[in-house]
């Protein structure tokens, strides 16, 4: 399997402060990896660096996405190239219907790939079919993006966006969502149903409980800006027994 993502010796700073201090991570196509680690270890920073958020600066190392230097692309170009970030806290956009937002997003990607844009009918057909598969209410389409959504609904909406955009690489920042068992289940079901041989997913989480529902191919433990352990499913069990302190020798935050 070709590698979708290769991160080599990645250093990154936020407001001049170094958060990532040499991350190495390889994610082959068709695999789901989990990135775990104590609070403050740099998990969310990594997700923002991958998505290209302004203010997150790569100072050393490289990120290869399908063999290309990802840092050369702006955030929106990355998304159009097939990178998807599921937000930990999805953002509200008042007055903009989910369908309008998604249609614009889907067509931006299609246009960039030289594909024909979806017209309203084709878009709706596709959206409704996916909503049914994901067991999400059709009303989602007409509601303004994330406005007035419950925590669980927001998670559902992110999964719906992911399904519509058919990314090659999906990064799911679920750092805190382990607190809510329902939200966690939604994310897990979404990840499981969207697993395909050509797609790679990186699920970021603080609590190993998410891994009761997603069986990752590999687990990486991030501590103080570096990957300190990588392994198979057994690593999750070890983590459960020893906690982060046992694995990394550091104090785990609650």
């Amino acid at each position: 399997m070709p590698n979708i993502l290769e991160i080599r010796n990645l250093h990154a700073t936020v407001q001049g402060k170094e958060i990532l201090k040499g991350v190495d991570l390889v994610l082959p196509a068709g695999e789901v990896h989990a990135l775990m680690g104590p609070n403050g270890s740099g998990k969310s920073t990594l997700s923002y660096v991958l998505a290209g958020r302004e203010g997150y600066e790569v100072t050393e190392g490289e990120i290869l996405y399908q063999g290309r230097d990802l840092t050369q692309l702006d955030a929106d170009a990355r998304a159009r190239a097939g990178l998807f970030l599921a937000f930990q806290y999805p953002v509200e956009i008042p007055g903009v219907a989910n369908s309008v937002f998604l249609k614009a997003a889907v067509n931006a990607g299609r246009k960039a790939r030289g594909e024909q844009e979806l017209d309203a009918m084709d878009f709706l057909r596709k959206a409704k079919a996916l909503l049914k598969t994901l067991d999400i209410d059709e009303k989602f389409l007409n509601r303004p993006v994330n406005v007035g959504f419950s925590g669980g609904e927001k998670k559902r909406n992110e999964i719906f966006h992911m399904a519509m955009l058919e990314p090659t690489l999906a990064v799911l920042d679920e750092t805190d969502s382990g607190l809510d068992i329902d939200a966690l289940k939604i994310v897990a079901d979404g990840v499981n149903s969207l697993r395909t041989p050509g797609r790679a997913m990186l699920v970021i989480t603080h609590y190993q409980r998410l891994l009761d529902h997603i069986v990752p191919d590999r687990i990486h433990v991030l501590a103080d800006g570096r990957i300190v352990r990588s392994g198979g499913r057994e690593l999750a069990l070890e983590l459960e027994q020893k906690g982060y302190t046992g694995l990394t020798g550091e104090q785990s935050a609650a």
Partner: peptide
């Protein structure tokens, strides 16, 4: 808001236009 739109593939100006139209 801008980053959320861009992370979905919308260029900055399309994102502004969308947000403003929503407003």
């Amino acid at each position: 808001q801008l980053f959320y739109c861009r992370a979905r593939g919308l260029g900055t100006e399309d994102a502004v236009s969308l947000i403003v139209n929503g407003f």
